[in-house]
């Protein structure tokens, strides 16, 4: 406890680096197994746009050169690796010649905002509800209402998204249908913009929350039931401690620990689940970027987005590893 030992930190950092390296390699290998040649696709697109392309062979060679596809695989790999680690993913083929990194830089804040918001809300709400389902002093209503609300958990996020969209945006018109902020609002650090962002982000976030909170609530319920039967909770009651204090300090504090681990492991899945939600709400985040890139066979963007998602997952696992000993005194940092 206390400080994190240096040997442990170095150990963890090496693991983190290796994870990222392997992920980066896989991301590079998989698209290369595809029979599609990105230069061909670009040429095809140019041909479709202009009717015909003169000196097609030369253009093709030039395109290959500009993407470095003319070099031996091994050279391509190490170049790619070096660039990727520096967040240089090359140029997008679909929106040529925009660098992939700037596309990601534009999309990432939206996804992070939406994701962090919805993930944190889900985690907090889900665990709180799970805890209240077990707590003896919860109002009866809570114990009836929560299981009913869990019906939504079995709905895929796109359907819940469409449903919410239809009710609250199309019928009631409380929220905008699509987009991340209003067309009339100038992006910047203004209240108008912030309100617009919240207004637009509400439904996408809700559609994620509504289908995922049940996972946390059910998990927490099981953990709470186990903790409730523990001798230390019984003794806490015999000690005449206040019921709320027992709930927080003796029950939730102990029941939440495995949930934190699950949280870190789930982050990657949560981002993946968000792809389609972003798509239906035309929300300009990483999910939409990835979706469009797959349709356009825009390999550099697919690589870049996948890399960033893996990086975020690896980083969150790393962070949970570091903080876990602080929330559970029985776990130690050992190298």
């Amino acid at each position: 406890m206390g400080r994190i030992p240096r040997s442990y930190l170095i150990n963890r950092l090496i693991t983190l680096f290796l994870t990222i390296l392997i992920a980066a390699t896989l991301i590079w290998v998989i698209p290369r197994l595809s029979p599609v040649d990105p230069a061909d696709i670009m040429l095809g697109r140019m041909a479709a746009g202009a009717g015909s392309v003169a000196n097609a062979d030369q253009v093709l060679a030039q395109l290959r050169e500009s993407f470095g596809l003319d070099q031996p695989m091994i050279v391509q790999y190490f170049k790619y690796l070096g660039n990727t680690l520096l967040f240089d993913f090359g140029l997008s083929t679909a929106s040529f010649p925009t660098p992939v990194s700037s596309l990601i830089a534009r999309a990432l804040p939206w996804t992070l905002g939406l994701m962090i918001l919805s993930v944190v809300i889900t985690f907090v709400i889900g665990n709180a509800l799970g805890a209240f389902m077990v707590w003896e002093r919860s109002p009866k209503l809570v114990k009836v209402a929560i299981p009913a609300a869990m019906v939504f958990t079995s709905i895929p996020p796109i359907l819940s998204g469409l449903l919410l969209m239809w009710i609250f945006a199309a019928q009631l018109r409380w929220f905008p249908l699509t987009g991340a902020y209003g067309l009339m609002v100038e992006p910047g650090w203004t209240w108008d913009f912030a309100l617009s962002v919240l207004h637009h982000g509400f439904l996408p976030a809700l559609s994620i929350v509504i289908v995922t909170f049940g996972f946390w609530a059910l998990g927490m319920r099981g953990l709470m039931i186990t903790v409730q039967g523990e001798d230390y909770v019984k003794l806490a009651e015999a000690k005449g401690l206040r019921p709320r204090y027992i709930l927080y300090r003796y029950m939730i504090r102990n029941a939440i620990l495995p949930q934190v681990t699950a949280f870190a492991l789930k982050i990657g899945l949560l981002i993946a689940g968000q792809v389609l939600v972003e798509r239906i709400f035309a929300y300009n985040g990483m999910g939409k970027l990835l979706y469009d890139a797959i349709l356009d066979q825009d390999f550099p963007v697919i690589q870049g987005v996948s890399y960033v998602i893996i990086l975020m997952t690896a980083l969150s696992v790393f962070l949970v590893d570091l903080i876990y000993p602080f929330i559970d005194p029985r776990i130690r940092h050992e190298g």
């Binding site: 001798d231 015999a238 000690k239 005449g240 300090r249 929330i327 559970d328 029985r330």
Partner: peptide, 29 residues
Amino acid sequence: RWSKLALIPQGAMNSLNPTMKISAQIADV
């Protein structure tokens, strides 16, 4: 409870909250 009637429990092995310091568990009561 406890101010008048205290309990020394059957299973002391599991009767202490694993996420609280010993002193804190005496201090809270």
